[in-house]
Design a binder for these strands. Sequence first.
DNA 1: TAATCGACTTGTCCGCAACAAT
DNA 2: ATTGTTGCGGACAAGTCGATTA
Length: 884
Amino acid sequence: MAVQACIKPKMFDDDDGGPAVFKRNNTASKQNQSNSEIKKSLPQRHEGPYGRQISNLHGESSSIKKCNSSPTKASTIKVQLTSSTASTSYPDNSQNSSKQNSVSSEKKQLNESPLDIHAKSEDSEDDQPLSVRISAGLSKSNSHVGLKGRSLPTPSSPHSPKTKPQKVKVSIKDSSDDSEDEIPLSLKLQLKATVRTSSSKSVDINEKKPLASKLQMNDTSKNVNQLVKSPKGLSKRPLGEGEIAQLSSAKKPKLPDASVNSKVKQTCVKAETDNDKDYNPISHRMKQSVSSNNKSASLKKKTKVVSSSFKKTTKKSKKFAKSTKYSKSTKVPPTSGEGQKWTTLVHNGVIFPPPYKPHGVKMLYNGHPVELIPEQEEVATMFAVMKDTEYATKPRFIENFMNDWKAILGKKHVIKEFKLCDFTPIYEWYQNEKEKKKQMSAEEKKALKEEKLKQEEKYMWAVVDGVKEKVGNFRVEPPGLFRGRGEHPKMGKLKRRIHPSDITINIGKGAPIPECPIPGERWKEVKHDNTVTWLAYWNDPINPKEFKYVFLAASSSLKGKSDREKYEKARLLKDCIDSIREMYTKDFTIKDIMKRQIAVATYLIDKLALRAGNEKDDDEADTVGCCTLKVENVKLVPPNKLEFDFLGKDSIKYFNVVEVELPVYKAIGQFKTGKRDGDDLFDKLDTSKLNAHLKELMPGLTAKVFRTYNASVTLDEMLNRATKDGEVLEKIAAYQHANKEVAILCNHQRSVSKSHDVQMSRLNERMNELKGVLDELKTDFVRTKKGKPPLKDSDGKPKKNLAPEVLERKIAQTNGKIEKMERDIKTKEDLKTVALGTSKINYCDPRISAAWCKRHEVPIEKIFNKSLLAKFAWAMDVDPSFRF
DNA sequence: TAATCGACTTGTCCGCAACAAT
DNA sequence: ATTGTTGCGGACAAGTCGATTA
């Protein structure tokens, strides 16, 4: 179905244009019900709507405040310095030269000698370049639309210029694509069907495309960031440059990876060429996107993802495959196999927290000191140290804690009731310990730190296919009381200590098995599964059915590759989004209720960036996502608005009043009728049905892809619309503003810092002082002009007689300071409840930021910190003209 | 078909150190 | 030198989604 794609004129756009709106008026706080204090409630962002509105949507709304209007800023200087280097394009490293260089060098070293540390940040060299260009071409103008304001206008205007040129390069495919466009949907569908059906499907697909291309694709994926050029020593992943190039070309299709599966995808994909044209109205193009095929063939995991048919075949065999592959390809680049994630894997296992050290401080029970054996004292201490957190006041927390603690105390123990317990002595002992630590001299602290580092160092690194990579969480979680978020039924339960016998290690077949760090104990199991990326796992003591995994760090090439695939998939959606929107719009009134619910749910996920909403067990906090919305979570606000009010992931409150198309409004009304509070709004729907449907529209499409897509599109558009020439600081402000819009879209909130109010009033005080100074200067200026002496200062002493020009200059300076402070205050208030980090880390394609930095001569370190630079190394060599 | 398993991504908070302001 | 502020990075909970099982 979906296939066709591209066509549509932006249906939604229009709509949007019209109405759409949404603002998040109030957002409330995260919290849930009760909680009083807890977090803050966000005062809503009044303006809520911000950006969107800005965008134009209807004019309604609020005014946005954009911050920057006025330049000013003293600090510029520094910035510029930095930037200067960067200027135009950074070759990979030029930017933070130091960092990057170091990194890269390290890698190289690694290759040469295993010793080095650091992860490589890979410079990604990969393909990007070409791809980028290609992509650039893609940038479509178009579309998006719809929804929210974000879509905005996006008329082509802005980028078009750049884009087009690039397209040219791409041309090859394009041509074909175009022709394809004409293909009727049905055909497309058929294509899919076929594919699926035939087990060989993958093959088929591939066939269409040149093998070479396929291969390349794979390689690429494999390589991922890795070393790249490096001389490589042994095994690393070879990334040939050639490959890269190819990729790029291939890439065009974009999804290199993602596509994997894709058959159908193609349909959507190609659009790039088209883009420009958006106007082409309807032409649906099918694109065969070569790329997609290729990919499918290649990738590994993707395999899974890929077409279902494919999967089926592969999956089962997966496990077998593993071994097989293993043997097959030792030398093969990682990823080559279907599900293969690596070929060689060496690491040192995990490190355990130190055993409990009894302190001997006695708590009181009914006023009397109580004797506790170490195991009992340990749990009492866990509670004692939480005495001043909100958890310690929650009945459920206390009840769960008491239940687990009593089990350790034993039936005969004197301690029976919580209300007779006084943990204060232990609490005070703990505070005292903390204070002692704080008082330690710098040298002592440093020594401790080094000691710790020394102990941990061997666990910090793994060698994957010959490349040294950082391990993410190599420390086993210490015992403690479970702190669930929101009203979690299990809060307060004892999270017991994890022992080696709880841990399963995953490591390469020939690699030495990590020595168990606790003498006399041994690992639960040692596996050699190269179709997964975890190094170790244990069962979650709170929920034994779940696992806690040890993975590589975000800077690893394995993670980087997967990240890139995620964005490539989202970019594929860009090419299908118009037709998908058109389709679900059509289904708002379809008779089949399930289909109507799917259409409306998809609309909400697309427009509001809601999460899919899997079913949850009773022993989890009661939160919802789109598919699990309850009747009471959505209220009709005539004539055509919906009020959403629910607790989402992490029990963060989502509150939003949105104008929707009338058919949606009506459909929601229908879904609500005859139901009571507590009933599912979408009773015919769940995430698997929804995703199964989405998959028909575009291979690999799932609900969360919409979030990635809309977040990245929003960032890209806002940046390109709002960035003006000027000082670097202003550009950074524009970036933050765009980032904020994305965060608001995704409802990424944070709690207001305890000192926020104090800080604000302090700022306001200073502001008033400045204004006082300004008034005084103005008065003196007027008096001086009239030949009168300045007024006396606050102490009644006479002031120096300054020339009018001098006063004028001072007035200008003060005005500048005031403006800057006003902006700062406003930004601080605006961002009080908005968390920018999450979207930056998980939703915004880093290539958008990297390309923007290059285009606007903003040093990338101003946007990405060290860890983000490492995580996004794969995106750093993006072509400056890259558009999402 | 639904429930469960399994692997991986996403998300918030918090302590601490670096930095900035005083 | 001291103290307030910011931001990093870690911890770990809570999602998503495909595969497998009942």
